[in-house]
Design a protein around this nucleic acid. Structure first.
Lengths: 144, 144
DNA sequence: TAATAATGATTGATATATCAACTATTTGTG
DNA sequence: CACAAATAGTTGATATATCAATCATTATTA
């Protein structure tokens, strides 16, 4: 870091680093469990599984991704036969759903992610977590 | 999000979202200022400028990137003539330095980033920022 | 209702992330 | 010294991020 060791500079660096560490850790656990999906692909599976009906744009907004990324991630999930894309009443949209394998993958990955998340916040108090949450929400609000 | 609205689940979502919001915001400000570099390219410029001497691997570790990414980012910065790569005494490494234009870009971008960072943490107290920092450091430690 | 707007999704181009394989040096050790 | 191990960097393959352009379909409105 060098010159800018001010708290705010470190903070943004830590946000980025934390994000990467969590992702890498989860990704490694997926691989160890023989789950051949990426963390991003899981986010998509999870959101589809949790939704009664969802368009790709809603999906993109929900997990904070671009429409283009969703199209491509879905392509990969279709190849892997974890997701189905059926034409909807409105022919501009698709009805997205998980296959049986998709549900299985999603659930297995969820257990792994939950473990990682729990481990990540070990020894951090509820109160501190609450401050963390509020702080991050504030930053988002300030910059969005 | 749906079912898993537990604090810890939201937290990780917020970390990811905050990271993206900060990056996007900075990137837009760069473009507005006519700075034709990405946030990642700036991180590399900044680190080189701050270092007396630094190898690509040290650079990668410092800004939490992969060696391969550094090679490619440097390629782009070389094309833009913002960075110089001279052979070092040890012929496996290069001596990295900024060109005059590189220094200018780096400084202009720094001002923008500082503004964004300041704006991001508006109305968050020192004490809360400290909790934020400690919390993120703890998560990193727990998962690394 | 015909022309135009808006909407949902895809595609192309470029940048970055990650892993693995590979090259070129340098270091360490017998 | 010779040769194996370690180190620095590059490259290829695949996944994702972002922006812009485009296509098809639906909604609006003159």
């Amino acid at each position: 870091m060098a010159k800018d060791q001010k708290l705010e500079d470190i903070l943004y660096y830590l946000i980025e680093k934390t994000n990467k560490v969590v992702r890498r850790h989860s990704q490694i656990r997926f691989a160890e469990a023989g789950l051949s999906i990426t963390v991003d692909q899981w986010l998509v599976l999870k959101k589809i599984g949790d939704s009664e009906r969802i368009t790709q744009i809603e999906l993109a907004n929900a997990i904070f991704k671009d429409r283009a990324s969703i199209t491509r991630i879905l392509d990969l999930l279709l190849e892997k036969k974890l997701v189905k894309k059926d034409p909807g009443a409105d022919k501009r949209v698709y009805e997205l759903s998980l296959t049986t394998a998709g549900i299985k993958f999603s659930e297995e990955a969820l257990m792994i992610v939950k473990r990682v998340r729990r481990k990540g916040i070990e020894e951090i108090s509820e109160k501190e977590l609450e401050t963390l949450r509020k702080g991050l929400e504030k930053i988002i609000k300030n910059l969005e």
